[in-house]
Design a protein around this nucleic acid. Sequence first.
DNA 1: CTGTATTTGTTAATCACTATAACAAATACA
DNA 2: TGTATTTGTTATAGTGATTAACAAATACAG
Lengths: 159, 159
Amino acid sequence: MTNLSEDSAVLRLPRLADEEVDFGLLAEMTGFSVKLVWILGYTYLTRAIDDAGITPQRFSMLELIGVNPGLTQTQLARALGLSRPATSLTIDFWEGRGHVERRIAAQDRRSFGIHLTAQGKTALEGLRVRVREADDALTRKLGPEEIDQLRGLLARIYE
Amino acid sequence: MTNLSEDSAVLRLPRLADEEVDFGLLAEMTGFSVKLVWILGYTYLTRAIDDAGITPQRFSMLELIGVNPGLTQTQLARALGLSRPATSLTIDFWEGRGHVERRIAAQDRRSFGIHLTAQGKTALEGLRVRVREADDALTRKLGPEEIDQLRGLLARIYE
DNA sequence: CTGTATTTGTTAATCACTATAACAAATACA
DNA sequence: TGTATTTGTTATAGTGATTAACAAATACAG
């Protein structure tokens, strides 16, 4: 995850501003602007939490488990838009660190309820602080009312 | 690129709205909203142009070449935020279709100036129409002044 | 002028991620 | 009771992008 050579990718962002390159249609597309901001946010977030393989996806999973203890893996997969195998592997990751445990569901012994361990709760607290900071950094050029405006417009699109 | 089985990925989007899942901190993050919209836009765009391997990245490259004929591969890589190997392969793709050609630069015979062929120009025109439609579809729930507002706020973040 | 260093582009090897397919166990239902 | 569906896992594969290594051309230092 550390890319520090000549062609480092973490910071590799399209360059709209400088030099003589005209972005043509891309510069007129809302989707392209969204992509640029997404890359920037992903970069901030990754830098904030990248300890031994913690990625935005993996954090999202831990957060969902923390807020909704007992969800099954299929429910988690659907909520986050992942395949069931990907979900299974993500839970393996957190279980291997002792942050999460699978408890067999009494009423349906095919499925597990996923829960945070005490360790997991502590880790999640620490991660949340850093994630918040990264998200604040992303919007640091906007005032509070502008952030609300932006969030509102984005929500109108995907809701 | 066709995923039509049970676990289809093209449409796989996190589900904020329905069911009993609480997204916790994620629901409060601007970066997460941006990600959702980005996924949606990427899905629309991919559906609009996905003929025989044309991806958003590859379209972006063709557009940049069309608007800025004669750029070198290194300049294209920097502008789009790609590595030079990735850029080289993308140009291979378009060159193989006869849409782009490499012309040796007279003053520096290490580098090529990249140019559209007549075929490439025609193809680009057709793609531009579909790309515009996909971008319009993404923002169809917003009025013109709201789109401007959104674009302005996003630009403030990455500029 | 000569030799080293840098730059451009390509190729090869690798890595990370995700998906699909196939499977066992449990449950639902006809 | 027997078939079909669902849950989760494993195995396989495919994709994309990256790093490293390289050849050719150019820049520059001594």
